[in-house]
Each structure stands twice: as structure tokens, then as C-alpha cells.
């Protein structure tokens, strides 16, 4: 049984049918990526999975537990944690305060201290700047902070929404490298990306989303070879 099972989800914005019966599975320890054009429904899918949007029908299960109707703050407690699109760090708070905020659901101090050590080990840059106001960090550092903040919430699975968005090309490689290290350290990741080439390089499997429906899915390496994917998403001819 897969760790995260999303089954036949239908999500609407008012009358707009944004997700038309989507099913996605993520196994423990995997990186699964969802690629697709702007407006295909990638972010909607992540928001539905984390409870920020409520699907009209379908089900979301984590380790067999039904989460479909839970409000977002309880979904976090169950272990689905989102790294939001555009980073959305708390710009006026310090790096440390941001990380603290990530640990909001967990009142076990020793566990929080351990998590903090883990985050600082992954991102030594954040440790150097722990007293700095987060809004003054560079884009790459802010992305690290957004990931670190999510890790503080003890995620079983991390939902990452466009982590490379708005970053200088030189930093994008670093971010994907970090995602791979996170995964090697045991975090399961569902990754939504427009940068399909990079996403398919680090993911094990991938889904191609188009107009709110899954076009097809396959192992990432095979998707990268697929004629349609190469034409539509990798910009090759």
C-alpha cells in the first residue's frame, strides 16, 4: 500500500472544474514529481492534498488514514507538510522565529531541538543567519528556510510547490541537490515543478498533468525519454 494515496479527486473553484478525477500515489521514501504547464492544476492538487482546498469528491489517505475532510491544521499534524509556492517565509521574523513557527504543532521540546539541529546540519547557512530577519535573506536562502520550516513540523511527506521558481539558474541546481539530500535522509517528497528537466532527474516516478487530468505516468527516466513529454515540457524537437 502506498504511503500517500490520492484517489479520483475532483476539486472546483466555484464552477470551474479544476481537478477532474486525479489519482496519485507516493510510496515511502520516493520522490514523485508532477509536471505540467501553467494552469494544469499542479498547485491545486497540492493544496487539495494539504487540506487548504476541499475536494468535492474523492479521497486522500496517508498510511491508510482517511484525511479527506480534515482542516489544514490537522492535516499538518497527520504528517503532510507543504512548502508553499513562492516560499512565503515570515519576512518580518528572524530565521529562528520562522523555524519555531514551523514547529507549532509539536510541543515536545527535545524533539524540536533535534529537528532544529537537523535543519541546521542540512542548511549551515541558516545557522549562520539564525538571528537575521528572514526578509533580508537571498532568494536561495529563503527557499532553504521554507524547507527548513516545513521540516520542523515532522513531516512524513513533504509537498513542494515550485521550489525553483524565481531563483537564479545558478541556485536552481543547489535547490534540487538539497531536495535529493533531504530524500536520501528519509523524507518522502511530492514535488510539483515547471522545471520538468530537473524534476525528472531527481524523481523516481512522474505524473504528467494537463487541464486538470493525469495524461499519463511512468518512471521518471522513461518520461524523460517520452516523445510527448520531450516536445511539450522539455522544449525539445
Amino acid at each position: 500500500m502506498a504511503m500517500l494515496e490520492i484517489q479520483d479527486i475532483h476539486t472546483y473553484y466555484g464552477n470551474i472544474h479544476a481537478l477532474k478525477g486525479i489519482s496519485v500515489e507516493v510510496e515511502r521514501g520516493e520522490i514523485v514529481t508532477i509536471i505540467g504547464a501553467n494552469g494544469a492544476g499542479k498547485s491545486t492538487l497540492l493544496k487539495t492534498a494539504s487540506g487548504l482546498l476541499r475536494p468535492r469528491s474523492g479521497s486522500i489517505r496517508l498510511e491508510g488514514r482517511e484525511l479527506t475532510r480534515l482542516p489544514p491544521h490537522e492535516v499538518v499534524r497527520e504528517g503532510i507538510v507543504q512548502v508553499p509556492e513562492g516560499r512565503r517565509i515570515f519576512g518580518r521574523l528572524t530565521v529562528l522565529e520562522n523555524l519555531d513557527m514551523g514547529a507549532f504543532t509539536c510541543s515536545d521540546r527535545r524533539r524540536n531541538a533535534e529537528n532544529l539541529e537537523r535543519v541546521f546540519a542540512l542548511f549551515p547557512r541558516l545557522k549562520e543567519r539564525s538571528r537575521q530577519v528572514a526578509g533580508t535573506l537571498s532568494g536561495g536562502e529563503q527557499q532553504m528556510l521554507a524547507m527548513g520550516r516545513a521540516l520542523m513540523a515532522n513531516p512524513k511527506i513533504l509537498l513542494m510547490d515550485e521550489p525553483s521558481m524565481g531563483l537564479a539558474p545558478v541556485l536552481v541546481d543547489g535547490i534540487f541537490e538539497t531536495i535529493r539530500r533531504l530524500n536520501e535522509a528519509g523524507t518522502t517528497i511530492l514535488l510539483v515543478e515547471q522545471n520538468a528537466r530537473m524534476a525528472l532527474q531527481i524523481a523516481r516516478r512522474g505524473y504528467v498533468l494537463q487541464s486538470g487530468a493525469i495524461l499519463f505516468s511512468d518512471a521518471a527516466a522513461r518520461l524523460a525519454e517520452n516523445e510527448i513529454v520531450r516536445k511539450a515540457y522539455l522544449g525539445e524537437h
Binding site: 482542516p71 491544521h73 499538518v76 508553499p84 515570515f90 518580518r92 514551523g102 504543532t105 513540523a153
Partner: peptide, 25 residues
């Protein structure tokens, strides 16, 4: 307090506050 921290998160960014596990309502 914890509630004070929750308020601070809501003030800074409601959506992210929710994603951090804060009960917005």
C-alpha cells in the same frame, strides 16, 4: 504564549499559518 505565536503567524501570512498547523478559525 502559543496563542500569541499563532496570532503572530496569522498576522504575517494567514495561508502559511494554516499550513504550519495553526487553526485559523
Amino acid at each position: 504564549s502559543r496563542l500569541g505565536r499563532a496570532w503572530m503567524a496569522v498576522r504575517e501570512d494567514e495561508d502559511v499559518a494554516q499550513a504550519m498547523g495553526i487553526n485559523l478559525v
